[in-house]
Design a binder for these strands. Sequence first.
DNA 1: TAGGCCATCTGGTCCT
DNA 2: AGGACCAGATGGCCTA
Length: 302
Amino acid sequence: MLTFDEPPSVQTSSPFRTSWATNQLNVKCVKAEPCRALVDTLESRGEDEERDGGLEDEEERGVRRRGSQKKKLSQGRLDRVRLRRIEANTRERNRMHSLNSALDSLRKVVPCYSNTQKLSKIETLRLAKNYIWALSEILSTGKRPDLLTFVQTLCKGLSQPTTNLVAGCLQLNTRSFVSEPGGESFPLYPAYHHHHHDHRGPEVVGSGSEDRPLRSFGSFCGSALYDSPSPDSPLDAGTLSPPMNFNGIFSLKHEEPGDYRSCHYGLRYCSISQSSSADPYDIHLRGQFYQVQEDLNKPFLN
DNA sequence: TAGGCCATCTGGTCCT
DNA sequence: AGGACCAGATGGCCTA
């Protein structure tokens, strides 16, 4: 009688392990004894109702009169309760799938997108928040930050793997700009690491960083963006809104020679032609996929 | 093996 | 009444 639901399509391309099949096994086990607690609850709640004549089965009425503390529901009511629970589960599942789809969409429009190294949900939200903050800062000041500052803003509060992924996306060698005078390098990585480990992603840039002493992110961020309120405190506290200035520069092009010479950021994005060979994680920036954004951005480009 | 992340089920609450 | 939303619980998979 119990049937498996259709596997959700959103999971089929996920680099995360697909747990649908295994979860369905659990679901099957649960469904074998569906909504027991709910049934019990309703049985208790329905006591008065049943007493008023709602009981359909005389045999069950007899059981109750014999002194059973466990109030029984009629089979029909029981079936309805179970059916409602199953339907609610399906709705909840679909709701979560749509939420995940929205998160997938968000992953594709944050500055770094990888088909193979998928950002976790929390990292996606953090990166999106930082990105909005960075763009707002550009709009507010009308100035373009250097790429380092931009990346540092994006990486605020992110885990090390995500930070390195973003740095890799933007063709930044973290060793080249996060280094001690003595030559020892540190990962581009905030103090967040001290209390949060994310072991999922491979490190794109830098190696062996786990064993190195970690500096507070702010200690090597002397930029204007980091002198300004961080993306974390004011926004999280809900006391400030990101600055908005629609007359500001919306898209900036990095003109200095270097690995990221052709890299655009803002609402135009890198098309890192040389990255594919060097990047084992199929990392790319997203601009080429979003003509609509390109069109929206045109007024700001000239 | 521990920790991170995930999907799913579940019951409570709020809203229509 | 029923649906949407939410948070807790549970268990599986993966990686260091």
